[in-house]
């Protein structure tokens, strides 16, 4: 083994820093793209129509499915970024990426190709929830506290943050001989040929609801689910990023 020694210089070092910055930037772009589409594939296959359609965003399933479907990937990525680099950005990275992506692809595909109006299918946002959970992690720096309060920070902010956008669609109208919300009427008006009305899995009456609706328990329950998701997917995020080398594959 032969080594050769060459003198370095301040210019060379500056160049090295520059190269390092470029690599870091493009690496984060690539990672951002990957976790975005990973989150999106996972989220849309689990939440799907509740995320797409304004007349599926109900009070019983939407708050829970929204939280669950996003948190799986978000927690794993958060765990990876925190464990490996103490960066409290994992959730926000995924959340920003997926939101931009959803707006883009819904414009191009759903509106552009099949002309569904965008107000029928704008995506929900989890960015505030993600920032809140990332902040809980940063401020507490403790796993247990993040499991408990991070999950609830995510879950409790999810519905209010989105209610701001969907509330106008819950004003009543009279159509087809009955009271409907604007959202219902949009769903009827802009025909989805392969999604008949009965497929809409939304809140329907029960003999026991809390204060006239299932919203409160749904939000509270989504936090509980969030804690379990934290416990499992933090572990997955940890395992998937371990520096493991194998001789044979």
């Amino acid at each position: 083994m032969q080594t050769q020694t060459i003198k370095t210089s301040p210019e060379l070092q500056k160049e090295g820093l520059e190269v390092g910055k470029r690599i870091q930037f493009v690496a984060w772009v690539i990672i951002g793209m990957t976790v975005t589409v990973g989150t999106f594939a996972s989220q849309s296959l689990l939440e799907g129509d509740w995320s797409f359609w304004i007349d599926w965003k109900d009070r019983r399933y939407f708050p829970i499915l929204g939280v669950i479907s996003y948190m799986l990937m978000l927690v794993s990525v958060q765990a990876a970024c925190w464990i490996k680099a103490r960066l409290p950005v994992g959730m926000t990275l995924c959340a920003v990426g997926i939101n931009l992506w959803q707006w883009f692809e819904r414009y191009v595909n759903w509106w552009g190709w099949f002309s569904y109006p965008m107000n029928e299918l704008f995506p929900e946002t989890v960015i505030p929830c993600a920032i809140a959970a990332d902040c809980v992690l940063l401020l507490s720096r403790k796993l247990l506290l993040t499991y408990l309060f991070g999950a609830y920070a995510f879950a409790l902010t999810f519905y209010p943050a989105n209610w701001v956008m969907i509330a106008p669609f819950h004003q009543p109208v009279e159509a087809l001989g009955q009271t409907l919300s604007i959202a219902d009427y949009i769903g009827f008006s802009y025909v989805r040929s392969a999604i008949p009305e009965y497929l809409r899995m939304i809140e329907s009456g029960t003999l026991r609801t809390f204060e006239g609706g299932a919203l409160g328990p749904a939000i509270f329950f989504s936090g509980v689910v969030g804690i379990f998701i934290y416990a499992i997917f933090w572990w997955i995020g940890d395992q998937c990023t371990r520096n493991r080398w194998v001789k044979k594959i």
């Binding site: 599926w56 109900d58 819950h170 009543p172 219902d184």
Partner: peptide
């Protein structure tokens, strides 16, 4: 802003 709202109708 929206004091009067109704939930989604399902029946």
């Amino acid at each position: 802003q929206f004091p009067i709202v109704v939930p989604l109708q399902k029946t």
